[in-house]
Design a binder for these strands. Structure first.
Length: 319
DNA sequence: GTTGAGCGTT
């Protein structure tokens, strides 16, 4: 909880960035203010040594478990190869980093079939045997507080996430399955396209392109006119969108909401488009792109449970 | 206080 004091360079006036509930600072939060920033450092007052902040899976961890981020004044680290992103003539390390980082990032997993007595706490404790649990919550009825029998869990490491998805789990006497939420599925979505809700009018196409370029190459930005409070961003790689849903994204200090752009939400005919196809990339043909085969991607095979491929009644013998 | 396929954002 709380805020982290960060400036671009050591000695500059710091700004306060909000930390997450678990005390971590999201790289996306950091990059919303310092777009090219890849990490944080701070100086130890006593020894004058500079220390780096631990970072993993898009999250930055405070130096101390007890005192959190403390009163340190953090400053940004930038990649050495910090060329303009439009310099697309070489497959440099920047481009590779931007492609692989979101692929390995964890996301919420849904836990189905939970006992009505299972709590956030017992859910967390159960999954902690697999790795750091960033979030564990039971979904409850708003008025009665009664559990709905399912919940969400999020891990700190992709490895733990993979291991959990590969098996069934006996939690509080019930066999439960852990799946990728259908909200991340690939139903009617337009390949590579995301819906960006809660936009404000001062967020223009260039702001959106600049922000979302950290996750992959952006090939189109559409802001419906007249302004309707949302916009669309399309990536070259069609699997990028499902890695962004459910995240908080802060652009120009505004918390926007990224969700799927499906075919029901096609822009109206009689509207202007502020910007599109600003990046005429030769690889714009989705069919030609090797990443276009969704099924080939491991992230799309999570729900194929080898134990119960046909919906076996998991809790038949219980209770 | 009961139930048992699903899919949330406080």
């Amino acid at each position: 909880m709380g805020f982290v004091q960060v400036s671009e360079k050591e000695g500059d006036e710091p700004i306060e960035l909000p930390a997450e509930e678990d005390g971590t600072l999201l790289l996306s939060t950091l990059q919303a203010q310092f777009p090219e920033c890849s990490g944080l450092q701070y100086r130890i007052v006593e020894t004058k040594a500079v220390r780096g902040v631990r970072s993993n899976e898009g999250r930055m961890y405070s130096p101390s478990e007890e005192s959190g981020w403390g009163e340190h004044h953090y400053f940004c680290v930038f990649p050495k190869k910090n060329k303009r992103q439009s310099d697309d003539n070489s497959e440099n390390s920047v481009a590779k980093t931007k492609r692989t980082e979101p692929l390995l990032r964890c996301f919420d997993l849904i836990v189905l079939g939970l006992s009505y007595k299972t709590t956030d706490q017992t859910l967390r404790e159960f999954f902690e045997t697999y790795g750091d649990v960033v979030k564990a919550e039971i979904k409850r009825d708003n008025t009665s507080g009664q559990s709905k029998g399912f919940g969400f869990v999020r891990f700190g490491s992709y490895d733990a996430q993979m291991r959990v998805l590969s098996k069934r789990h006996l939690i509080d006497g019930r066999w439960c399955e852990v799946k990728v939420p259908s909200s991340r599925g690939i139903g009617n979505q337009v390949p590579g396209k995301v819906f960006v809700g809660r936009c404000t009018e001062d967020i223009d196409a260039e702001d959106l392109r600049e922000y979302f370029s950290q996750f992959g190459e952006v090939i189109e930005v559409v802001i419906p006119k007249p302004f309707r409070g949302f916009s669309f961003v399309t990536f070259l790689d069609p699997y990028i969108p499902q890695l962004l849903w459910g995240e908080d994204h802060i652009i120009k200090g505004v918390s926007v909401r990224v969700s799927s752009a499906d075919k029901r939400v096609v822009p109206k005919k009689n509207q202007q488009i502020q910007s599109n196809n600003f990046n005429m990339h030769p690889g714009n043909n989705f069919r030609m792109h090797p990443a276009n085969n969704f099924v080939m991607h491991p992230a799309n095979n999570f729900n194929m449970n080898p134990f119960y491929p046909h919906g076996y009644q998991m809790n038949r013998a219980m209770n």
